[in-house]
Nucleic acid binder design. Sequence first.
DNA 1: GATGAATGAGCTTTCATTCAT
DNA 2: AATGAATGAAAGCTCATTCAT
Lengths: 181, 181, 181, 181
Amino acid sequence: MLAEEGYANTSLRKVATRAGYTTGAVTYYFANKDELITALAESRFDSFDAMLEGSHDDTDVKALFGRWLARTDDPEFWPVMIQLLAHARYEPAFAAVIERRYARFRELYTSILAAGQAHGTVRDDIPADLLADQLSAIGDGWMMMFPIEPDRFTPSRLRALVDAAVTLISPPRRAPRERGS
Amino acid sequence: MLAEEGYANTSLRKVATRAGYTTGAVTYYFANKDELITALAESRFDSFDAMLEGSHDDTDVKALFGRWLARTDDPEFWPVMIQLLAHARYEPAFAAVIERRYARFRELYTSILAAGQAHGTVRDDIPADLLADQLSAIGDGWMMMFPIEPDRFTPSRLRALVDAAVTLISPPRRAPRERGS
Amino acid sequence: MLAEEGYANTSLRKVATRAGYTTGAVTYYFANKDELITALAESRFDSFDAMLEGSHDDTDVKALFGRWLARTDDPEFWPVMIQLLAHARYEPAFAAVIERRYARFRELYTSILAAGQAHGTVRDDIPADLLADQLSAIGDGWMMMFPIEPDRFTPSRLRALVDAAVTLISPPRRAPRERGS
Amino acid sequence: MLAEEGYANTSLRKVATRAGYTTGAVTYYFANKDELITALAESRFDSFDAMLEGSHDDTDVKALFGRWLARTDDPEFWPVMIQLLAHARYEPAFAAVIERRYARFRELYTSILAAGQAHGTVRDDIPADLLADQLSAIGDGWMMMFPIEPDRFTPSRLRALVDAAVTLISPPRRAPRERGS
DNA sequence: GATGAATGAGCTTTCATTCAT
DNA sequence: AATGAATGAAAGCTCATTCAT
């Protein structure tokens, strides 16, 4: 519902009906709308965690991005996240959940990138935590535009974007060009 | 109101009251809520355009980012944009406005970056349009997290992020490890 | 509605329907249920004030009681007051209205009784303010039982109660009885 | 709950939670809300009866009033009674309980006052049953105002009110103004 | 004896919208 | 240009009640 109708148009009533229950049944399990939304957010982050778990001892940044992009398989995943993130600011308890979860992601990214720097597969002229922030921002930026312009995100364009991102964080190649020589 | 209360909590009533008018006055100027929100979006993009106008014949990418970040002076700017963008998907007429405006930005970015590549100030191993997409995504990603975790965006952190972004798109310096060999 | 159904069973919906309007029309005039109830209370006290106005420079306590009892003409008056008073405790703003209004009544009673004492028509072995409190309590006590046992309050019984109350506050008659002599 | 929140805000859910049970447990013992509230009323009247039992062969009206006022020790007693009485009208089965119980009280009062009249401790120019009604009304009147203006009912004011009530129903002393003649 | 799931109706309140004035 | 009255729908939520377990 969040993905299809947006937060503002998502009502307990509609959620209940869609689930084949009455409104009362929903409020029986979730004290209020906040709790319902927060539960949804936690569940989404859980599934996201599970995805990352696989790449835990991985230093392959490209594979990581690939998994992130694989989310576009489910055309609802990103739109849902956008609705949740956009609303977070106005539900402090909910914002706390997001802060906590996001912090974990950035830590993970940072450690992966730091490992990459140690192995020489990631450029080391920028601190790992800054690189993690940039990659995280790139992912969020894509996520934000995807619901608005899904057509721009063709598989080939996505591949090109991933390749470009990987190039950005790779160490400079040996002899880039005979510039000025 | 959008920034302070979020889209879901913004009503014509509240907007009218805050403006010192009655609800009827609002509906006199805007046929319906969509029109009001779309007008707001256009106005925001206009002010954004005006900002970019200054850097039109500019090839200094860092200055461009700086202007983008200068928006954090107005703590409402980014939150408003997030609310608008998050809602765009569910208001097709409104999404069209955003698509059109965003396309212009990316074109501008692309031309600036292409100019930079021609001058050798921007790396040319990635096509300018892909770089523009990445920079745009980075900006959007920051914008999205800012309303949720404003405290993370200290001036010094922002400066570090800008510097890192500039480093990412700069031409690779002579590979450091070649130096001593 | 208050009289017929009681506070707990009085809904804005029902009030609106009974008035031939929609719920929205009610909430247009009264921001919320409290305000509606408070407005009703004020109006009731106003009509009560008007009643007392007539006896302002009156020292005839019996006439005063008579007017109070005349309220039983409108079989709704007392039940409404009971509902309002019973609910007052749980609506502080509303309780304030009642406190203020009741204080005025007691002052008026006190001044009337004091005048009666000066004229020798009211016993003076009890301070006027205490007498006023007692009379006020008697009136409230009747009011409270009336809605529950209306049948007990026949016109003749009411007359007897008024006469008894007047006797209670009258000065002892000269030679009550040859008791003990 | 009745005392603290008022009848309109008292739900089976809240009662159950406060008792440490589920709603189902409440409906297991009480077929419906009416039955629960009626059971509460009976229990309250029982405890009130027990109080009166002690003064059964008592002719000391002052002591009787004293016991009535002692109820203010429990700041919930009167508010609960008010909620019950105010609601009685709208629950016929419940009103019947109150009628029956109140009738008993008045009978008791009447017999006590009649005994007092026989002993010369109570004025006999007003029939005992009317006096009983007045005293009952006074008690109810206090009870009604207590929850709204508890601060007015200081111990010393209560004592003064009791003394005044006793004076009201006492046999007239020799008329003071006759004294010196 | 008590729970937990669920219903269905109803509540107060808010809202976008309409329209006569 | 703007108000004020009113609608009608929907919102989030609460509630008494039922009933299988």
